[in-house]
Amino acid sequence: MSEYERSRTMPALPEHVFDQAGDVGRLESWMPAQLHVRAQELPAVTIHEDATGRDEPALLRTDREQMRLEWGTREDGVYAGWLQVAGAGSGASEVTLHLSFFDERHDPGADTVHAALEGSLERLEEQVRLRIDGGG
């Protein structure tokens, strides 16, 4: 099993960050570009990966009270992940992204995963900034 984690401080209240991160219709605005989410009857979703051309049944759960998203493959248990938003004081938030690969054959490697986590956090921060600056 491999586990990866990255965190970033964002200049917005935790509720604003979580609202942006947890909006199923906006997941693709911050997720890696090669992944696409189609919501079914939540928590069921389908993840399409451009690199393989495959659709993977998955689960996505949001817990606004805990400001946490959790996801993972539904049938084969290959991977799981979570996003946690916490207050960091002075109107800022700390966002942590975590991925676990339960089958080493599906782990793309530390460099690839760390780059994907960093990129996702950067895009999420940009989306949060746009929402806050744009007032919507």
Rank of each mutant, 00 (worst) to 15 (best):
E15I: 05
M31Q: 13
A12S: 02
D76K: 08
L69H: 07
L83R: 02
F101C: 05
L117D: 14
E126S: 12
E126F: 03
E56C: 11
Y4C: 10
D76P: 02
R64T: 11
A80T: 10
G89K: 03
L130Y: 07
G136D: 12
A110F: 02
E49R: 08
E126I: 12
R8Q: 12
R129C: 01
L121N: 04
A110V: 01
Q20T: 15
P32G: 15
T52Y: 00
V128G: 07
Q34T: 13
A116R: 12
E126H: 14
S90T: 06
L35Q: 10
E5H: 11
H48V: 07
R68V: 06
E3D: 14
S90H: 11
V85T: 06
V45H: 11
A33W: 04
V113K: 00
L117Y: 08
D23W: 00
W30A: 01
G22H: 03
V37H: 07
L97H: 09
P11K: 15
A33I: 04
L117C: 09
E70C: 05
V37Y: 15
H106P: 06
A51E: 06
R8V: 07
A110Y: 01
R26V: 07
R123M: 08
M10A: 04
E56F: 06
E15G: 09
V37I: 15
G72R: 08
E75M: 05
S90R: 15
R64A: 12
H16Q: 14
R26Y: 04
E94V: 15
A92H: 06
Q66L: 07
E122F: 01
Q40R: 13
E126V: 13
V128F: 08
S100L: 08
E75D: 13
S2H: 05
A88V: 04
R8T: 02
A116N: 13
H106A: 14
F18R: 02
A44W: 02
G81A: 05
E125V: 07
A12L: 04
